[in-house]
Design a protein around this nucleic acid. Sequence first.
DNA 1: GCCGGTTGTGAATACGTATACACACCTCTA
DNA 2: TAGAGGTGTGTATACGTATTCACAACCGGC
Lengths: 345, 345
Amino acid sequence: MSGSNRPPTSRDLARLAGVSQATVSRVLTNSPRVSPDTRARVLQVLADANYTPNALARAMKTGRTDTIGVFMTRVTSPFHAALLDEIGRLLNQVGLHMILWNIEHDPEESVSEVIQQRLVDGFILTSATYTSKLHTIALASGTPTVLLHRGIDGLDCDQVVGDNWQGAYDAGRYLVEAGHRDIGLVTLEHTGNTSRDRDLGFRAALADGGISIKARNAITTAVGHADGHAAAQKLLSAKKPPTAIYTVTDLLAFGLLDGARALGVRVPDDVWVVGFDNTDMASWEAFDLTTVDQPVHAIVKAGIDLLRHRIADPSADTTIISLPCPLVVRGSTADTVIRRRGTTR
Amino acid sequence: MSGSNRPPTSRDLARLAGVSQATVSRVLTNSPRVSPDTRARVLQVLADANYTPNALARAMKTGRTDTIGVFMTRVTSPFHAALLDEIGRLLNQVGLHMILWNIEHDPEESVSEVIQQRLVDGFILTSATYTSKLHTIALASGTPTVLLHRGIDGLDCDQVVGDNWQGAYDAGRYLVEAGHRDIGLVTLEHTGNTSRDRDLGFRAALADGGISIKARNAITTAVGHADGHAAAQKLLSAKKPPTAIYTVTDLLAFGLLDGARALGVRVPDDVWVVGFDNTDMASWEAFDLTTVDQPVHAIVKAGIDLLRHRIADPSADTTIISLPCPLVVRGSTADTVIRRRGTTR
DNA sequence: GCCGGTTGTGAATACGTATACACACCTCTA
DNA sequence: TAGAGGTGTGTATACGTATTCACAACCGGC
């Protein structure tokens, strides 16, 4: 009933089956050099004992752990949660485990130690920033590494990102073409190229339309719902508030929408709002947010493919993939425009 | 620059320092039987080489991996994301890694294999259900295991849960005392004691107030936002809709609120809404939801303490902890009642 | 000046598996 | 019928570390 003894080893079972440990191992690894007879007998013994190989010993011998280390921040943020979910799903599909590290909670030194422990076959970094040394350490460790969602320009490392610049540009052009002239921007520090491109792409579209953002209408803030909320207070309680506001993440847009709600400002009647990410929540009635879609599934799929490829062949050329981010129009902008209630993803 | 050679082993460094591998190991494990001289010399060499012990080899020898396996479902759900975040944070604080398995994506057989691989020192299960055999397998493997958030009555296993029954009871009493007589309930199948207690506790409070829920006002549904939305359609488009609705999770309440929004039903003027979980989002203006707080931090803290205790002493008595879940009143109910804008957690 | 005890170190081993190597046996061809 | 080549199995070893055991050097007390 309890059975909390030492679990049986391949040697134990070899004795039981009347063969050598090597033969048991050969059966386990599907070596062709085992007679059908012996194989059947061993398999029977293995099944009877409900045996599972010790993953540690196997990893030590083979040098592979079948585990991928995933670095991530802010799991509670809707987009990151969706990203994590997808990473977990796809890793599982190909028989890989996931060790998850939340960089936010961890000083970088301790993380860098972890990186060198050879505990994983590869790394997935989802929050690369210019100032973080994580990707440097990971690459220096020689462990296959892929950057997802956030990339680093010019870094010699596999990367899969959404085309944030283009997505932001399309969002900007959409607002310009709808006739907006006073446009607000809620953005983040350019700590990585994701936030940078979502900012610059948008500005570029406005510039192409002959519009520039007034200084008082551009807010650089932190990443939370509360920060979007505060931005709404600033932007919308001005004498002449913008008629449309773009935020570089959905979460900021949610905060902004809630801030507008608190002020009694109507969306889209008084102000249009556009976000970026197309999280599930963006389609909820509470927000009904026009936003730029990030192809999470495609990003993760491509990233894991790249990573596995590199694990198999470490000398492969580095690949950088950029996937299109289409605009999804919903009710936060759509009073005058044909509306498409997309539920991509 | 690349340095992608084989990483140095303790034996390599022993040679460099002019000592035996055993001595290096003694330094690494802080053994007292090393002369200050030798220790200093070895430490210098280790630092110069930027050496990190191979975690696999160490784990194989010591039998400890310093890694905890976490089983979870639906990471994209706000409450689960918060739970995961907290688990990651607290594990990190005590120097433990986390392997995350999303049970949803994985057939149970493959998970059960994982459980027996001795890859982790302990398990945290956050979604125990009556029908799942996960906890059985985990316990049978002899690996220390703790059930968080969802427990199994009568199971001989450490458990930390919120007092769902009491929380639900308080929610029910709150509605009764506010004078509601036609009350709606959106609940889940009783797949675990969490959903069961949140259902039965609420009904008990109503019964104590002499109220029973009309059959047409009790909806058993699935766990998503869309399901709460659909429940709103059913409950609120009736001829005589309930004046208050309680849902057993915040996520269902969000869907319900969105459904009400779509129907033009005002909250709390036309109907009160109460949820359960007190996720961050519940405090957003979009929802401003009265809900029962789950003490996530306390649950995770106690759970990890319990787990570490059991890892240290496997024969310890099993402990079952139930933590109070206080009602947090917000705008989805508070038009006639004194309002407390709690931001517990 | 001999001896029990302490201190620091190295040699050897074990953790559980995968695999290189050796070898005995069988089969087939010349 | 002998030798070449294939087939199935066992023996031995290696992965990198922690730890046991042995032992040399030193120390203090008679």
